[in-house]
Simulated scan of single mutants.
Amino acid sequence: MPKEEFYVDMTCGGCSNAVTRVLSKLDGVLYEIDLPNKKVIIESSYSVDVLLETLKKTGKEAKYLGCK
Results as ranks from 00 to 15, higher is better:
residue 16 S to L: 09
residue 37 N to Q: 10
residue 52 L to H: 06
residue 28 G to L: 09
residue 28 G to P: 11
residue 61 E to M: 04
residue 57 K to H: 10
residue 12 C to D: 13
residue 39 K to Q: 10
residue 48 V to A: 00
residue 65 L to E: 05
residue 16 S to C: 11
residue 42 I to W: 04
residue 30 L to W: 11
residue 34 D to A: 03
residue 26 L to Y: 13
residue 6 F to T: 00
residue 57 K to G: 06
residue 59 G to V: 10
residue 24 S to D: 15
residue 54 T to I: 04
residue 10 M to R: 13
residue 59 G to C: 11
residue 28 G to Q: 09
residue 48 V to Q: 04
residue 55 L to G: 04
residue 8 V to R: 03
residue 23 L to W: 04
residue 1 M to P: 07
residue 60 K to F: 11
residue 23 L to V: 01
residue 59 G to T: 09
residue 3 K to C: 03
residue 21 R to Q: 14
residue 12 C to G: 14
residue 4 E to R: 05
residue 4 E to P: 02
residue 62 A to P: 03
residue 60 K to V: 03
residue 33 I to T: 02
residue 40 V to G: 06
residue 22 V to A: 09
residue 63 K to Y: 03
residue 11 T to P: 08
residue 49 D to K: 10
residue 11 T to S: 14
residue 43 E to Q: 10
residue 26 L to C: 13
residue 1 M to D: 06
residue 67 C to T: 00
residue 55 L to Q: 10
residue 25 K to D: 09
residue 60 K to I: 08
residue 25 K to C: 11
residue 19 V to W: 03
residue 2 P to S: 06
residue 9 D to G: 08
residue 41 I to H: 07
residue 11 T to K: 15
residue 37 N to I: 07
residue 47 S to N: 12
residue 30 L to K: 15
residue 5 E to Q: 09
residue 18 A to K: 13
residue 36 P to W: 02
residue 39 K to V: 03
residue 45 S to H: 15
residue 5 E to V: 08
residue 61 E to T: 03
residue 60 K to L: 15
residue 16 S to P: 08
residue 59 G to P: 08
